[in-house]
Design a protein around this nucleic acid. Structure first.
Length: 275
DNA sequence: ATCAGCCCCTGCTAGC
DNA sequence: TGCTAGCAGGGGCTGA
């Protein structure tokens, strides 16, 4: 479940290995579900072959490879996706969907459950692409203001958790950081979104930014599948206050952490600390 | 327009 | 020990 901090960590890890490199061969898994019929395997191969990787960016949970021809290779890792480099000639594991041969290494995308996606976006089409245009501000950018949050929550009858997962309030926040931010803000994720006060909105904004910054510094959270490089896991797992801690004592008040389904997802919270 | 709920997919785990 | 049912979840879709 790579969310913003995990994707950012992967981006930083890969930068040195891919920027300026030429894609000299491309292998796409036949009928890979990751392409979602948005581009055919042969077409993707044709468009990538011979291109140089100019930059590696991120938007929300999407990784964006800017190519020398002006188009973009975009990858979303879904739940179990992993993107990492291996030595040339090294055999790729099962569930490899894409393999790019670079000058001096290979880049592989592995995804057993195929919740991830690979997009090829034409020059100039990045911001208007349906998947990316819906995203809200990056939580660490200046555009992530209390006014924006207020607008996203205002009048909404659904839960705060559902809005946080929707990517329009803040791009890149998923199940783990939604729960962690709610705990740090002292707000119950099951609260009706429209019911937050100005004060709570400000606390939520700070809490989201704080968990994201802290987690990036820890190279993300390794819960089940995520590794930011071959065999290397993130340390934020140790700092989780509620996520995955059902039945364990709250680190703040000692009461038991609860888990309930909200917006179709496991939601962890302390009923005593979060109102 | 809004929102709850379903669907995809497969590795892992709990329970028999 | 070996099997199976159930769970996990991002984002797109459907139907109320």
């Amino acid at each position: 479940m790579p969310e913003l901090p995990e994707v950012e960590t992967i981006r930083r890890c890969l930068m040195d290995k891919v920027i300026g490199r030429m894609i000299c061969e491309v292998w796409v898994r036949k009928g890979s579900r990751l392409l979602r019929d948005t581009v055919s395997g042969p077409m993707l191969r044709r468009r990538l072959m011979g291109a140089r990787i100019e930059a590696l960016g991120r938007r929300g949970k999407y990784l964006i490879f800017a190519l020398s021809r002006g188009d973009f290779l975009v990858a979303h890792l879904g739940m179990t996706g992993r993107l990492y480099s291996v030595s040339k000639g090294e055999q790729a594991p099962a569930h490899t969907h894409l393999r790019l041969e670079l000058d001096d290494a290979s880049l592989i995308l592995v995804d057993p459950r195929t919740f991830g996606r690979v997009l090829l976006i034409e020059a100039g089409g990045l911001d208007s692409h349906p998947s990316l245009s819906r995203l809200g501000p990056e939580p660490l950018d200046l555009g992530f203001t209390a006014a924006h949050i207020k607008k996203e929550l205002g009048g909404r009858n659904t839960s705060l958790k559902a809005v946080l997962l929707g990517q329009e309030l803040a791009a890149g926040v998923g199940n783990i950081y939604a729960d962690e931010a709610c705990f740090r803000a002292g707000i119950n994720p099951r609260r009706r979104a429209g019911s937050l006060t100005e004060r709570e909105i400000k606390a939520l904004r700070l809490a989201i930014r704080k968990v994201i910054v802290e987690s990036i510094a820890c190279k993300g959270t390794t819960f089940r599948d995520y590794q930011w490089d071959a065999g290397r896991s993130g340390d934020f797992s140790k700092r989780l206050r509620v996520y995955g801690r059902e039945g364990e004592p709250c680190r703040r008040c000692g009461k038991m952490i609860k888990r309930e389904m909200t917006a179709g997802r496991s939601t962890f919270f302390c009923a005593s600390c979060q109102k």
